[in-house]
Design a protein around this nucleic acid. Structure first.
Lengths: 260, 260
DNA sequence: ATTTTGTATATTGGATCCAATATATAATCG
DNA sequence: CGATTATATATTGGATCCAATATACAAAAT
């Protein structure tokens, strides 16, 4: 009979895709809703209502909620209900510390094995983000843009750490990024078009945001170049700065948002 | 009306205990079964069968399995079944690295705030483990003992890191410990009473194990004392040694176990 | 009037039932 | 006789139904 070695190598690269169960699809939907702020922290999730809106029965919904609980996105109080997790400033500090600690490990591993291909791929993602900024700056800084920016940000980090070849580490980091991403939204505390006295005029806000994003991208490029040179300590140094700047800024905004 | 300030402070310390749902109880049972090796890696878990044996319907079982999946103890392939996770040597290296990285963070935070009370409590756990060794060395090194030893080991680490006051960090570390604990079992690759040529005579094995455990306890004491002196770098140094020794020994045994 | 107690409603956890899919087995064809 | 297709069985994912519990509300008592 005919052999199909090509098929084997293909399957090795693209293993059979898992069937999409309702449970998974619901989990993904809810995850996204929580991450982009449509379901803010503190929301109580009624099973009956949600299952109707999502067009599934309550069971796959419950299973999805359990998954999200494992990811720390929701909290369950038996017999009482499920609530979207609310993170305190202290939770944030913890998450930031863990991020630095683990990403430092990841980037160290990655830097050692970085290839030219990795460099190109990582930079390509940075350029996509750059283009995204140009496009989205003028019209509106809406929820959609935040979401795309968050995705690109994580896509970059994942690609950067990939050469380390540490899948468990990577997924742990992804989880932390996820928890974090929800609160990037605080950046845009005003709805588009409005001038919020706490943050200044709309034009100023936009200009400031763009400046910050450019800075983030610059740091991303630095990290790529350090990895390209296989200079792990340098990469870690930039990363440390990256995360702590990021974190400091976030904390500042959290405090600002909490005051008025 | 009467006030009850005593009640308040009591509740603050012992918040209302969550109702025990079948789901939780099943999850706990399965977790323990996996951790102590009754369900070794690679076991396929049939829902019908398990639910009958556990005396619940399939639904709470499925929900329990989802929780365990979140903890990395089992893996689900939709429509095909649930399998107890099998960890490769590489997974182990990763987990070890993450443990060191995160526990280092935890012990640093703890060392800064360590009080005399913490010192006493931590040492008390060490002494309990010491007693456990004395008791269990002679009769039989069975699964039960392994399990108790594992519990005490984690209890110690948790108590040690508690002053850091970083609950998220702690639970992440707990998860890693858990994944790890399953493979501590490799220490006792022979059933009690048997002489396994790969490891030498039974008496030798016992003596060796005891020596190792004593070493572990000695390191635990060192860590406590370093924390007591608020000497974070020293504590981290001992921890690093602790984890890497631990890890090196485990890897050696894994290789040994894999060879014959 | 305030607090307590009883009752009704809402909502969750769990059990049973059904449908979709995978695996194992038998039949058919070259 | 080996390989392939068709069929039967097993097992999972999902829907509906029921019971246990929590919350909301009303009535009663101090």
């Amino acid at each position: 009979m005919k052999k199909a070695p090509v098929l084997d190598s293909y399957l090795a690269e693209f293993p059979r895709e898992a069937p999409v169960t309702a449970q998974e699809s619901v989990a993904r939907t809810l995850r996204r809703l929580i991450l982009n702020g449509a379901l803010p922290g503190g929301s109580v999730l009624r099973q009956e209502e949600l299952s109707k809106k999502l067009g599934v029965s309550r069971m796959p919904l419950r299973e999805a909620l359990l998954k999200l609980e494992g990811e720390g996105l929701v909290e369950t109080q038996p017999r009482r209900g499920v609530v979207v997790t609310m993170l305190s400033a202290q939770d944030f500090e913890e998450i930031l510390e863990m991020r630095y600690s683990l990403e430092s490990l990841a980037i160290e591993g990655a830097a050692k094995r970085f290839t030219a291909e990795d460099t190109l791929a990582a930079l390509e993602i940075v350029e996509r983000a750059q283009a995204e900024i140009q496009l989205s700056a003028a019209p509106d800084l809406d929820r959609e843009f935040e979401s795309r920016w968050g995705d690109l940000n994580w896509e970059f980090h994942r690609r950067l750490y990939r050469p380390a070849n540490k899948p468990r580490l990577l997924s742990t980091i992804e989880n932390l990024h996820q928890l974090f991403a929800r609160h990037l939204r605080v950046r845009i505390a005003t709805s588009p078009g409005e001038d919020n006295p706490a943050f200044g005029l709309r034009e100023e806000q936009i200009a400031k945001n763009i400046r910050e994003w450019q800075e983030v991208l610059a740091e991303h490029r630095e990290m790529v170049m350090a990895c390209d040179r296989h200079d792990a300590p340098a990469a870690q140094a930039v990363l440390k700065r990256h995360i702590s700047d990021h974190g400091a800024e976030l904390m500042r905004r959290l405090r600002e948002a909490a005051q008025p």
